[in-house]
């Protein structure tokens, strides 16, 4: 369990996301989302397919822009930052884990882990990357390309990359969605173990009740609204 503080690391106020449709109307994906995530907290956003979980995660991470409302991350309002400023905010402070791993196919395991370190100009990049790979049990696989690794191994590399920095805030989007039960358990354990080790705030999107229960609290999303 992390040391929780009352300091909010992320907050969303009246966040709404709409998309224009071909008929000229608007399709509402999220409506008036209000939430606060405190430093060190692990929060699960639970919902069925199509409920808007991944869209909300993208907005919270600054990967997309809101239609209405405000999101503050590290005390900075995302809508006042341009794309480069949002990228700088993420570099070294925010980590991501995706359902489909999202590794760079042309880079080996070691270089995939090293990538965010290079983007943030971190010192001792190679050493840090090796240590992270070792921590996920893939020290012997550092020169393997993603295609030469199993799904579970790829997600381990993705976890090592996500904790490079280490980040203050980690976003995980269905991190075990593409894996079998056994491998899922291993990845979950690794995720929470690394989170504890680095004292990282975690926002996790999932439809898996069991996984959600491992977090400090759960937010439920239904038809684009928190319930």
């Amino acid at each position: 369990m992390q040391n929780l503080t009352n300091q909010p690391i992320l907050s969303a106020s009246q966040v709404t996301k709409t998309l224009p449709t071909s008929s000229g109307n608007e399709l509402t994906l999220l409506t008036d989302i209000n939430l606060t995530i405190r430093t060190g907290e692990a929060v699960a956003i639970l919902g069925t397919s199509g409920s808007g979980k991944s869209t909300l995660l993208g907005l919270l991470a600054g990967l997309d822009t809101v239609s209405r409302g405000e999101i503050h991350i590290f005390n900075q309002a995302l809508n006042t930052l341009d794309e480069d400023a949002r990228a700088r905010l993420r570099a070294g402070q925010v980590g991501f884990v995706f359902q489909s791993f999202q590794l760079m196919p042309n880079l080996n395991a070691l270089d995939n882990v090293r990538l965010p370190l290079q983007l943030s100009n971190a010192p001792n990049q190679l050493q840090q990357a090796r240590t992270l790979l070792q921590s996920v049990g893939l020290a012997q696989r550092e020169h393997h390309l993603p295609t030469q690794l199993s799904g579970g191994e790829q997600q381990r590399v993705a976890l090592a990359r996500a904790f490079a920095g280490p980040p203050r805030l980690l976003f995980a989007d269905e991190p075990t969605g593409n894996l079998d039960n056994n491998t899922s358990r291993q990845i979950e354990d690794l995720l929470f173990s690394l989170r504890d080790q680095h004292q990282t705030t975690l926002i996790l999107v999932t439809h898996d009740e069991r996984l959600a229960q491992r977090c400090d609290r759960t937010l439920r999303l239904h038809n684009g609204q928190l319930i």
Binding site: A87, R90, A91, M104, L119
Partner: peptide, 19 residues
């Protein structure tokens, strides 16, 4: 498509426009 995906990932990981 592959370039789009790579660039999106790099931006997610914090790459600036200059990079």
């Amino acid at each position: 498509a592959q370039r789009q995906r790579d660039i999106a990932l790099l931006r997610t990981l914090g790459a600036t426009r200059q990079q």
